[in-house]
């Protein structure tokens, strides 16, 4: 039986070894180059159209990568639907794999959110899968390598022609001051603040809407808590604590309001920092020790998965906190 397994693995094992050896030789022949690092996504098209207030619109490489991520997710969804079969047959292939993943996710959501699980789950799963796919697609070789070549403002590298019309840059100082650099077609979507901030804003706005759905207008008493003022009038005897408490409640409400904005900031910068930092780490390690840089890719896979999980879990926790009752002020004053 063991032999059978070894046979199944045999070809793949040699393929992996071959790829590793080829990688070592190729990195020796074509030394990796530190890419031009910048935080905003680089534009890869000219200005497409201009809107009056919002300004010029163009396609950035991070947006193109996000579209690629969407395509991949659609493809997976279609593959899952196609392999689903009828209700009686056991799930196989894509459907089986995703039933396991989605089932595990749903269990986590249900254990935290309780009866609101059905409402919260799609948001958690969507953002988690989107971020996970975006973070893992970054590992593909086409990312941050293929793109338009243009003359660098300063520094830059020597360009050589590969075939007609296709050039590549080599790790040599540019002579006579005409260095070139590359604007890649694809760059990891999470390395752009636009992607992460959009996700964070959507999530937090959704959390507020869920809160309103759960409590109605009462939800906003979390931010503007005048309730204890009214209950102050109804008291027969006023202790000093009863007079101070309403003001404390208002202050707490202001803090809650600030914390909602802080959530947006922390959501977006956590994802951006982790993934952009990873991208820079990868670029630096690739330049320093090109032979073993694939080790960093495992770290990237891990960090990408953890950040996706963290985003999903925080969405879950915030949404659950918004839906569960927070009106314990009234209960607190009853005794």
């Amino acid at each position: 039986m063991e032999k059978e397994e070894a046979k199944g693995f045999g070809l793949n094992r040699w393929l992996v070894v071959l790829l590793l050896v080829a990688g070592v030789f190729i990195t020796g022949r074509f030394a990796p180059i530190t890419p031009h690092i910048q935080l905003p996504g680089e534009p890869i098209t000219d200005v497409l159209f201009t809107l009056p207030i919002l300004g010029p619109f163009y396609l950035t490489n991070t947006l193109l990568a996000t579209l690629l991520v969407d395509l991949v997710l659609f493809a997976i969804a279609f593959a899952v639907v196609r392999s689903m079969g009828d209700e009686n047959s056991p799930p196989r292939g894509w459907a089986n794999a995703f039933e396991a993943i989605v089932g595990a996710l749903y269990n986590i959501v249900e254990s935290t959110a309780g009866k609101w699980a059905k409402t919260i789950f799609p948001w958690v799963a969507t953002s988690l899968l989107l971020i996970l796919t975006a973070n893992w697609l970054r590992i593909l070789p086409i990312f941050e390598t293929i793109g338009w070549m243009h003359e660098a403002h300063e520094g830059g590298y020597e360009a050589r022609e590969l075939i007609q019309g296709v050039e590549y840059i080599v790790a040599e100082e540019a002579h006579d001051g005409h260095g070139y650099e590359i604007i890649p077609f694809f760059r990891g979507s999470s390395t752009d603040l636009n992607f992460t901030a959009a996700l964070a804003l959507t999530t937090i706005v959704m959390v507020q809407i869920l809160g309103v759905r759960a409590h109605g207008v009462n939800y906003f008493s979390k931010f503007l808590s005048f309730g204890s003022f009214f209950s102050m009038w109804r008291r027969k005897r006023l202790g000093p604590f009863d007079v101070i408490m309403p003001f404390i409640n208002i202050f707490v409400g202001i803090l809650e309001l600030i914390s909602e904005f802080a959530k947006v900031v922390s959501f977006s910068f956590r994802l951006l920092g982790a993934i952009f930092g990873g991208a820079i780490l990868f670029a630096v390690i690739t330049t320093l020790v090109p032979m073993v840089s694939f080790g960093i890719m495992f770290l990237e896979l891990f960090v990408g998965a953890v950040q996706a999980l963290v985003f999903g879990m925080l969405t879950l926790v915030f949404a659950t906190v918004a839906t569960i009752s927070h009106g314990d002020e009234e209960h607190g004053e009853a005794h």
């Binding site: 935080l39 986590i108 922390s266 920092g273 952009f276 820079i280 953890v306 999980l309 963290v310 925080l314």
Partner: peptide, 30 residues
């Protein structure tokens, strides 16, 4: 359950480090 909550709490602690990283990156590259 402990693992999930631990990862969640680590994310909060880690966020501070990532803010520092973002500040450093902004200083360097922006």
């Amino acid at each position: 359950a402990i693992q999930i909550n631990m990862i969640l709490a680590i994310a909060f602690a880690e966020a501070v480090a990532i803010y520092a990283l973002v500040v450093a990156l902004v200083i360097l590259f922006v």
